[in-house]
Simulated scan of single mutants.
Amino acid sequence: MPQHTDSFSLSNVDQPTRNVEIEFNGVSKSWGENHVLRDLNLSVTAGEKVSIIGPSGSGKTTILRVLMTLETPDVGVVSVGGDILWDVKAGVKPKETKKMRATRRKVGMVFQQFNLFPHMTALQNVIEAPIHVLGLPKKEAEERAVELLGLVGLKNHMSHMPHQLSGGQQQRVAIARALAMRPRVMLFDEPTSALDPELIGEVLGVIRQLATTTDMTMLMVTHEMRFAQDISDRVLMFDKGAVIEQGPPDQIFASPEHERTRRFLSMMLDR
Rank of each mutant, 00 (worst) to 15 (best):
V206P: 08
V110D: 05
V77D: 10
V110K: 02
Q171S: 06
L123E: 06
Q229R: 15
V78L: 09
V27E: 00
L165F: 01
L154D: 01
M186A: 03
E96M: 13
I175E: 06
I244Q: 00
Q164D: 07
Q164L: 09
M268N: 10
P2E: 12
L151T: 09
I175P: 05
G153R: 13
G26Q: 08
L134H: 12
M218Q: 12
T72Y: 10
V36T: 14
V133G: 02
Q3T: 13
L136T: 11
K99M: 11
Q169D: 06
M267R: 15
K240F: 08
T121A: 00
D196R: 00
T261Q: 01
H157I: 11
V206Q: 03
I52Q: 01
A129S: 09
G57K: 12
G54V: 01
D239R: 13
E142P: 07
L151K: 10
D39F: 10
W86S: 02
L269P: 08
S56L: 11
R38P: 06
S232L: 10
T17P: 05
L134Q: 15
N41V: 03
V44E: 07
M68E: 11
I231E: 10
I200C: 10
R184H: 09
R65Q: 07
I244F: 05
P118C: 08
S30R: 11
T213C: 04
R172T: 06
V50F: 11
F253N: 07
G47W: 08
M218F: 07
E190P: 04
V13I: 14
M181H: 04
M220Y: 11
A178V: 02
D87C: 09
G108I: 06
N115C: 09
D189G: 02
M186V: 04
R234V: 09
G150Q: 02
H4R: 14
D83A: 15
D230Q: 13
